[in-house]
């Protein structure tokens, strides 16, 4: 889910930027430093929307750099356990498939794919029901439920399932042809 939240960060600025455009410099540095980063706590920072508040700067001993506490509004993407969302399948193999929901990768193991879907190792590997009515392959759109998240320093991975009511394929790129 995408959220609009307020975050805080201490920004260090070199004294050469002090002047009438100090605030602009602070904003552009903040965008450069923060946009595109990911933390386990707040998720992926997609875009900064504005500055809420810039606190009083504090001169660092020894270096002359000044630290400003900056509060800013931003759009983040944070997956939650139990959340249901839509995703695009990026890779299919016999272990299961990977899908992408915005910046986050979700893996759905073959144990969490309905039992009536079998793996087929054709040119485009896929999972298909015995009557061929439903097929999951690269670029399929699926609705899945996140059942677990794993967080490391700069990335969030999710484990998902499509083995539940109202989950599974919503559109299949091959169906039209």
């Amino acid at each position: 889910m995408f959220f609009h939240i307020i975050l805080e960060r201490n920004m260090q600025l070199h004294p050469r930027h002090f002047g009438p455009r100090l605030r602009d410099k602070l904003v552009s540095k903040l965008m450069k430093d923060v946009e595109g980063t990911c933390s386990g706590r707040h998720g992926f920072v997609v875009a900064i929307m504005g500055i809420e508040h810039v606190g009083k700067g504090l001169i660092r001993d020894g270096t002359g750099f000044v630290t400003f506490p900056v509060k800013y509004k931003c759009v983040v993407f944070r997956p939650f356990k139990g959340e249901i969302l839509e995703a695009v399948v990026t890779m299919v193999n016999k272990m299961g498939f990977f899908a992408e929901a915005g910046p986050v990768q979700v893996f759905v193991s073959n144990h969490l794919i309905p039992d009536d879907m079998e793996f087929q190792s054709a040119d485009t590997p896929n999972y298909t029901t015995s009557d061929n009515s439903v097929k999951i392959q690269k670029d399929s759109e699926v609705r899945l439920k996140i059942i677990g998240t794993r967080v490391d320093a700069t990335e969030i991975f999710c484990i998902g399932t499509i083995k539940d009511d109202f989950l599974g394929v919503i559109s299949d790129p091959g169906a039209a042809s």
Binding site: M1, F2, F3, H4, I5, G40, R41, H42, V75, R78, F80, K81, G82, E83, I146, V151
Partner: peptide
């Protein structure tokens, strides 16, 4: 982290007040 569960609306303290976006 363990207690998080979106189906019970448990989102953790950072996100309960946050605005969700469609």
């Amino acid at each position: 982290e363990e207690e998080e569960n979106a189906s019970e609306l448990k989102l953790g303290e950072d996100f309960v007040k946050a605005k969700c976006l469609m």
